[in-house]
Design a protein around this nucleic acid. Structure first.
Length: 213
DNA sequence: ATCCCGAGGG
DNA sequence: CCCTCTGGAT
């Protein structure tokens, strides 16, 4: 391994240690009772706060708790329910079609690989990694807007391409910690390394950061 | 005016 | 690489 990558490896582990000492094992911020409900919640979470997703899906799951019920739902009805989440027309269509595809092609079960998960409408690589890491103890590293921003600010990565970021972190970190590392970076991004005005003086890892204020 | 656990299309 | 889809909070 190159010298440069070894330094990033070391910094990554230090970041993980420090954030873990603050947040520990982070539980899933999204509400769900079943794997199907996790799938739907993660699809709906695009460009929306998880808090708002949680408020909205409680009503959605009360009427449509599983893939059979949702697959037979009326699009307009779903649009009304999930409207506060935003991007509601695409998402309404996507979750209904995802439910149909689950029933027709996957036997009603949530697939366990990124390749199969991304065949579902509305499921991209980030969503698939979240599902994998939560449901199957998989090694997915989900790169969302927080992970992207924090890693670029620190200087671990120098690209905003989520796939490239995922591949680099996969090389640097032990795979069993990838899921929690993603969640730790999200917590840090939400609480301290804010998008608009980061709280650098209060940041626990500002000694490891290239762009600390 | 900017951001939120993005995806899909051009 | 770019753009659009979208409402709610700050």
């Amino acid at each position: 391994m190159k010298v440069l990558e070894r330094r990033k490896d070391y910094i990554c582990v230090e970041i993980y240690r420090t954030l873990f000492s603050i947040y520990g094992k982070v539980k899933c911020p999204l509400f769900y009772r079943t794997p199907f409900q996790l799938l739907i919640s993660v699809i709906l979470s695009a460009q929306c706060t998880d808090e708002r997703v949680n408020k909205t899906v409680s009503g959605l799951f009360a009427k449509y708790p599983d893939s059979m019920a949702l697959s037979e739902a009326d699009v307009n009805e779903i649009e009304k329910i999930i409207k506060p989440i935003g991007l509601y027309k695409i998402k309404a269509k996507n979750i209904i079609n995802a439910a149909k595809k689950l029933n027709e092609e996957f036997g009603g079960e949530i697939p366990e690989t990124i390749e199969k998960l991304t065949e579902l409408p509305g499921v991209g690589r980030k969503t698939a990694n979240v599902i994998i890491s939560h449901l199957f103890d998989g090694y997915g590293f989900a790169v969302d807007t927080h992970v992207n921003r924090v890693l670029n600010r620190i200087g671990i990565v120098n690209t905003h391409n989520p796939y490239k970021i995922e591949m680099l972190i996969m090389k640097l970190m032990s795979h069993e910690s990838l899921g929690n590392f993603s969640l730790l970076l999200i917590m840090h991004g939400r609480n301290t390394c804010l998008a608009r005005t980061p709280k650098c003086p209060d940041c626990a890892i500002n000694n490891l950061c290239r762009k600390r204020l």
